[in-house]
Computed example of a mutant assay.
Amino acid sequence: MEKVDFSGLKLKVIGAIVAISAIDLLKSFMDISGNMTELDEDKLMWKVIIHMTFVLSGLLFALMDKIVGDTKKH
């Protein structure tokens, strides 16, 4: 077994959150009917916005960890 540091654990948690959000979003897309109301469209739009926010924050956390890992230690 390999040891996981705080940074690795943080990325694993963010990845799990993104995966859960993606599954919920897929479920919402599968339930789309031909007669969607404006309220249903708004709910779907907000789910997509929230999912993309999770994805973007995960990418930014990964980028920050890479930058910190590549910097030279003094």
Rank of each mutant, 00 (worst) to 15 (best):
E2V: 14
E2T: 15
E2L: 14
E2A: 15
K3Q: 12
V4I: 15
V4L: 14
V4N: 12
D5S: 09
F6P: 02
F6E: 09
F6T: 01
S7M: 08
G8Y: 00
K10Q: 12
K10F: 08
L11A: 11
V13K: 06
I14G: 06
G15P: 06
G15K: 11
A16P: 07
A16H: 03
I17L: 15
V18I: 14
I20M: 10
I20T: 12
I20H: 01
S21L: 10
D24P: 00
S28Y: 05
S28V: 05
F29K: 12
S33N: 13
G34H: 11
G34F: 05
G34W: 07
N35W: 02
N35K: 09
T37F: 00
T37L: 05
E38T: 05
L39R: 01
L39F: 04
L39T: 08
D40H: 02
E41L: 10
E41S: 03
D42V: 07
K43Y: 14
K43Q: 12
L44V: 06
W46F: 10
V48T: 08
I49V: 13
H51P: 02
H51V: 00
H51G: 03
T53E: 04
F54A: 05
L56Q: 08
L56S: 14
S57K: 01
G58L: 09
G58D: 05
L60W: 10
F61H: 08
A62F: 03
L63Q: 07
L63E: 09
M64P: 02
M64F: 13
M64K: 08
M64R: 02
M64I: 09
M64T: 11
I67M: 05
V68I: 11
V68N: 10
V68G: 01
D70Y: 12
K72T: 07
K73S: 03
H74C: 06
H74A: 08
H74W: 00
